[in-house]
Computed example of a mutant assay.
Amino acid sequence: MDHGQFAELAAAAHRATDSLHAMLYFAPEAEEELTAAGLRPGRMSYFASRAAAMGPVGPGVVTATFYNFNPELVARHIPRAWSLASPDSILEARFRAAGTALQRLLGDAASGAEVAEAAELAREATRGCVPEGRPLYAAHAELDWPEEPLLVLWHAITLLREFRGDGHIAALVSAGVDGLTALVTHTATGRGFTESGAQASRGWTVEQWTAAVRSLQDRGLLDADGALTSEGQALRERVEAATNEAATGPWRHLGVERTQRLREIGKDLSKRVVAAGAFPAELFGR
């Protein structure tokens, strides 16, 4: 398998497994556990639970590492969250929520042999990650591993996701794409968030979004209808190619055969969580 094919395999493995991590951000169990720990429901719980591994950091650090959120939205919740609950208690609540949510979404499969096998494979893949230049990954990589296979799988996918995400931000920065521009152009691809879902979840006003669209139109990256031009598509393709390239380390460590096996199991498990209603249709247009 040549370098380009391995980068494509890295992207495919990510797509196959990511839902098993991302389901947490929409699970009622997360809000229940995190509010019980002292946080306010909604955005505060999200920002604090994902950032807690870095300690009680300020809004600038969260905005920088999360990248495409409106800094004003982040500042409404961070650092106040740390006065309501400690990072350690937040992390404990997050792990409990992940386990409970996956148990509900996967049913009997949550304790099955495939989850145990996928957990071993995903954990092994993380041994191919390196912390340099990956701040959010590095913070989560310093947490203790859970013992239950279901949570081992979730934590391993979390590490792989944040490792890839840090590399994606580096690719965006290198391409001169700021957080809002990244969000607008990604939404224009028709994958991921709907436009209204992106604005609502990331805290951008209609005015801010419209100004970004106009700027991208002036730069020739969006056409008059807000669709990507050929130049805009080429920009997104360069960013994705650089992201895939930077994400190959753990999958090269795991090897082609085991990566394909994890992808196979991950696709099956991800289909189960999606079918169980893990993600809201109004955000993703399903």
Rank of each mutant, 00 (worst) to 15 (best):
residue 42 G to D: 06
residue 129 C to S: 09
residue 38 G to S: 13
residue 261 R to D: 03
residue 45 S to N: 07
residue 282 E to Q: 11
residue 207 E to M: 04
residue 174 S to V: 11
residue 81 A to V: 04
residue 66 F to Y: 12
residue 242 A to V: 05
residue 64 A to F: 02
residue 146 P to T: 11
residue 261 R to T: 05
residue 40 R to E: 14
residue 36 A to S: 05
residue 105 L to R: 02
residue 275 A to Y: 04
residue 159 L to W: 05
residue 54 M to I: 01
residue 112 G to M: 12
residue 66 F to C: 07
residue 111 S to N: 11
residue 220 G to T: 06
residue 139 A to I: 08
residue 107 G to S: 10
residue 132 E to I: 07
residue 119 A to W: 08
residue 107 G to W: 10
residue 187 T to H: 02
residue 5 Q to F: 09
residue 178 D to W: 03
residue 58 G to S: 05
residue 179 G to Y: 01
residue 176 G to S: 10
residue 244 N to V: 04
residue 277 G to P: 04
residue 221 L to V: 03
residue 17 T to Y: 00
residue 141 A to W: 05
residue 135 P to W: 04
residue 105 L to I: 02
residue 145 W to L: 14
residue 212 A to V: 06
residue 164 R to E: 01
residue 138 A to D: 13
residue 207 E to R: 10
residue 179 G to P: 02
residue 15 R to Q: 10
residue 20 L to S: 01
residue 139 A to L: 07
residue 227 A to Y: 13
residue 222 L to Q: 00
residue 91 L to W: 09
residue 130 V to D: 05
residue 44 M to E: 15
residue 153 L to S: 03
residue 120 E to D: 13
residue 279 F to E: 07
residue 189 T to Q: 13
residue 108 D to M: 11
residue 40 R to D: 15
residue 57 V to F: 10
residue 213 V to L: 12
residue 168 H to F: 06
residue 201 S to W: 07
residue 195 E to V: 09
residue 275 A to N: 07
residue 30 A to C: 06
residue 245 E to T: 10
residue 234 A to W: 03
residue 208 Q to Y: 06
residue 89 S to E: 14
residue 269 L to E: 04
residue 131 P to L: 12
residue 241 A to C: 10
residue 272 R to T: 11
residue 2 D to R: 09
residue 60 G to W: 04
residue 145 W to R: 15
residue 84 L to C: 02
residue 257 E to D: 14
residue 65 T to A: 11
residue 203 G to R: 00
residue 77 H to A: 12
residue 56 P to C: 11
residue 73 L to H: 00
residue 64 A to H: 04
residue 71 P to Y: 11
residue 148 E to L: 08
residue 231 E to W: 05
residue 225 D to F: 10
residue 207 E to I: 07
residue 250 P to V: 08
residue 113 A to T: 15
residue 218 D to W: 14
residue 270 S to N: 03
residue 163 F to G: 02
residue 40 R to M: 12
residue 202 R to T: 08
residue 233 Q to P: 00
residue 119 A to Q: 07
residue 47 F to V: 06
residue 176 G to A: 13
residue 148 E to F: 01
residue 143 L to M: 15
residue 264 E to G: 09
residue 219 R to D: 15
residue 224 A to L: 13
residue 253 H to Y: 13
residue 237 E to Y: 07
residue 210 T to H: 14
residue 276 A to F: 06
residue 109 A to V: 09
residue 153 L to D: 02
residue 69 F to C: 04
residue 229 T to E: 08
residue 181 T to P: 00
residue 196 S to C: 04
residue 15 R to L: 13
residue 205 T to I: 09
residue 190 G to V: 09
residue 81 A to R: 03
residue 223 D to T: 12
residue 139 A to M: 09
residue 264 E to W: 13
residue 197 G to V: 05
residue 286 R to T: 15
residue 77 H to N: 12
residue 177 V to Y: 01
residue 142 E to D: 04
residue 210 T to K: 14
residue 30 A to K: 00
residue 71 P to D: 14
residue 242 A to I: 06
residue 275 A to E: 12
residue 78 I to R: 03
residue 129 C to A: 14
residue 124 E to Q: 14
